[in-house]
C-alpha cells in the first residue's frame, strides 16, 4: 500500500499533466527538431542513408566531435545563395507593403460596415482564401500564361498584338503572393480596427480635424498591434515561400525556399539544406520574436 502511494505521488498531478502534454508535444516536434537541423548543418554530405556523416564519433574510449563549417562557407562563397536570400527578403518586403496598402482599406471598410454585413464579409475573406493556396496559385497559372485568359482578353480588345510574358516572371510571383497572403493581413487588422471607439473620431471632427488628419493621427496609431500582427503573418512565411515561386516564377526568380527545396530534393544535399534553414531562421528570429510578443499580449488580453 505504501509503495502504491509512493508510486502515485511520482505520477504527474493534474496541473502538471495539463501543462506537460502540450508542452512535451511541442518541445519534441517543434523545438527539438531545430537543434537537429543545427547539428546536421555541421555534418558533411555523404553517399549513404541518411546522406550525411555523423559528427559525434566514439572510438577507443575517445569521443571525437567533427564540426564541419564547410556548408556555411559554401553559402558565403556561392553568389546564388546570397542572391536568393536577398531576393526572398526583397519580395517579402514589397509583398507585405502591397498587402498592407490593399488590406488596410479593406479591413477598415469591413470594420465600419453593419454588424450583419461584417460577419458575411469576413466569411467571404476567410472561406476559400485562407486555405487552398496551392489551388489558387494554380488558378493564376491558367490566367497568366501566354495563351491564357488575360492575354487573350488584352489581344481581343486590341490593346496588345503579341502576348505578354507574365507567367514565369517575378511579376507573376508578386501577384500570386499578394493574392494568397491578403487574408492574413486583413483578418488581424479587422480584429483590431473593429475595437476602436468611434467617439474618438467624432471628437476629433468636432475639434475641426479633417478626416484624413484624424485617420492618420488616431486610427493608424491605435491599430499598431494589428499592423504588426498582419505584417509579420505575411512577411515571415513569404521569406520561406516555396509553392508560389516554383509554380509562377521563372529562372530569374531566386527565392530561398525554392533553393532549399532544390538542395534537399534534387541534389540530396541535406547538410547544405540544413545550413540554409539555419541562416534563414537566424534572419527571421527577430521578426518571429516580435510576432510572439505581440501575440502573447493578444493571448493574455493585455491589449
Amino acid at each position: 500500500m505504501k509503495i502504491l502511494n509512493r508510486l502515485k505521488s511520482l505520477l504527474p498531478q493534474g496541473r502538471q499533466l495539463v501543462i506537460g502534454v502540450p508542452f512535451a508535444w511541442l518541445f519534441l516536434f517543434f523545438l527539438l527538431p531545430f537543434l537537429i537541423v543545427l547539428k546536421i548543418s555541421l555534418a558533411e554530405a555523404d553517399v549513404a542513408i541518411p546522406p550525411y556523416t555523423e559528427i559525434f564519433a566514439w572510438a577507443d574510449n575517445q569521443l571525437s566531435i567533427i564540426l564541419n563549417l564547410n556548408n556555411y562557407q559554401i553559402l558565403t562563397e556561392d553568389e546564388l545563395y546570397l542572391a536568393a536570400y536577398l531576393g526572398s527578403l526583397k519580395t517579402a518586403f514589397f509583398c507585405t507593403l502591397l498587402c498592407l496598402l490593399i488590406g488596410y482599406p479593406m479591413a477598415y471598410a469591413i470594420a465600419r460596415a453593419e454588424r450583419e454585413t461584417q460577419t458575411v464579409l469576413l466569411l467571404l475573406i476567410m472561406m476559400p482564401t485562407w486555405t487552398a493556396i496551392l489551388i489558387r496559385v494554380y488558378a493564376w497559372m491558367g490566367i497568366l500564361s501566354n495563351n491564357g485568359l488575360l492575354n487573350s482578353f488584352l489581344m481581343g480588345i486590341g490593346l496588345i498584338d503579341n502576348p505578354l510574358q507574365i507567367l514565369n516572371t517575378n511579376l507573376a510571383v508578386y501577384i500570386g503572393i499578394v493574392y494568397s497572403y491578403l487574408p492574413f493581413m486583413v483578418l488581424p487588422l479587422y480584429a483590431n480596427l473593429v475595437k476602436h471607439d468611434p467617439s474618438l473620431l467624432e471628437a476629433a471632427a468636432d475639434l475641426g480635424s479633417s478626416n484624413f488628419n484624424s485617420f492618420w493621427k488616431i486610427t493608424v496609431p491605435l491599430s499598431k498591434n494589428g499592423i504588426i500582427a498582419g505584417c509579420m503573418l505575411v512577411f515571415i512565411p513569404v521569406v520561406g515561400e516555396f509553392v508560389i515561386p516554383e509554380l509562377l516564377g521563372g529562372p530569374e526568380t531566386l527565392m530561398i525556399g525554392k533553393v532549399l527545396w532544390q538542395e534537399f530534393f534534387n541534389n540530396r544535399d541535406w547538410p547544405v539544406a540544413s545550413a540554409l534553414a539555419v541562416v534563414m531562421l537566424a534572419i527571421l528570429i527577430v521578426p518571429i520574436i516580435l510576432f510572439n510578443r505581440n501575440q502573447a499580449k493578444e493571448l493574455e488580453g493585455k491589449v
Binding site: F30, F34, I36, M232, P237, W261, A273, M280, L284, P287
Partner: peptide, 11 residues
C-alpha cells in the same frame, strides 16, 4: 503560425 513551412518540414 508564421514559421516558414520549408524550415518546419526539413526539421
Amino acid at each position: 503560425l508564421v514559421m516558414p513551412e520549408v524550415i518546419t518540414g526539413l526539421s
